[in-house]
Nucleic acid binder design. Structure first.
Lengths: 162, 162
DNA sequence: GTGCAACTTGAAGCCGACTTCAAGTCAAGC
DNA sequence: GCTTGACTTGAAGTCGGCTTCAAGTTGCAC
């Protein structure tokens, strides 16, 4: 452990301890997720708090947040100290909600799937699996917008990213 | 409804009824998810079964399958008739499993998150949220490979696609 | 003071799942 | 038979989240 004062980390050290590639960390810095000071020679030096931020981002990704969303959440937390309980629970509340939504969606899908195994129909017009029923839909001939998640303006509009 | 005999659908009709863009359907055909016959003039004509296949694919995507995986599942189903209960439940079993896994992962994450709100620590070494605990990890100084899902050969290896 | 690993940069590449474009052809209603 | 909208193609572009590359520089142990 030959760290400079203040326990500054090189990008390699941060990579090793966070499990991310150095290229990913450089990318994270570029998009403003983490910040680095520079040595006289121009090399990055990270505060230990960056570890926390990186971990936060990775956790956010697991919940399904994009890096943009993670950054937005991070921006509401202090840069260089551990967040207070209040700050943290505020940032985490969004995740809770997100997780709950995702679980709910999956449960719904599972219920439908179970039902479908029983019927074996796979009929577009009848099968519950194909008709999300949280959409108005059905305005016209046939079941439209079967599995889209957002109101669309027409068949040529952009489906969910995946 | 001016359909040719056998109820063949144009790509536009399939798009409207499935909710996908025609470009997406062309793409699906290109990657072998659906198949089309051609008119003398070279235009695509889809069997109604394509609607079922498209819906299957979209449902598969919701479960988190890639198009490749969806195709693999589809390939075990009949091309031009509704699958039997057995065929269908076989194909769906994989989904069930997938859904269960996803729900489980989210529940785990949620439990950790809840605990973390209480403690507010966000400490790399202590916070349960950051330590997946389904990984061996911890082999060395600090918590490595915090949130990766697969065993990695080193810090430079590829993290999960997201 | 030297050797070498670790660092620097910008640009380009990659993946999946599409969309967009341009320029041309087909099909069907009048 | 003409018009017009729907169709055709391949190539290129998009987006997020990175990785890879090449060529050069820094920092630290000895």
């Amino acid at each position: 452990m030959t760290l400079s004062r203040h326990d500054l980390l090189t990008i390699g050290q941060l990579a090793e301890r966070s499990g991310l590639a150095t290229s990913a960390l450089r990318y994270y810095e570029k998009v403003g997720l983490i910040h680095a000071t520079r040595t006289a020679g121009g090399q990055r030096r990270f505060e230990r708090a960056s570890l926390r931020r990186v971990a936060f981002v990775r956790a956010a990704q697991r919940v399904g947040l994009s890096l943009d969303e993670a950054r937005a959440a991070l921006d509401r937390l202090p840069q260089d100290r551990a967040p207070s309980t209040g700050e943290w629970s505020g940032a985490a509340a969004a995740w809770q909600h997100r997780i709950d939504q995702q679980i709910e969606e999956l449960e719904r899908l599972k219920r439908k799937l179970t039902g479908c195994i029983g019927c074996g129909c796979l009929s577009i017009s009848r099968c519950a699996l194909y008709n999300t029923d949280d959409r108005a839909g059905m305005a016209g001939p046939g079941a439209r917008y079967l599995l889209t998640r957002e109101p669309t303006t027409g068949p040529e509009s952009r489906p969910p990213a995946g």
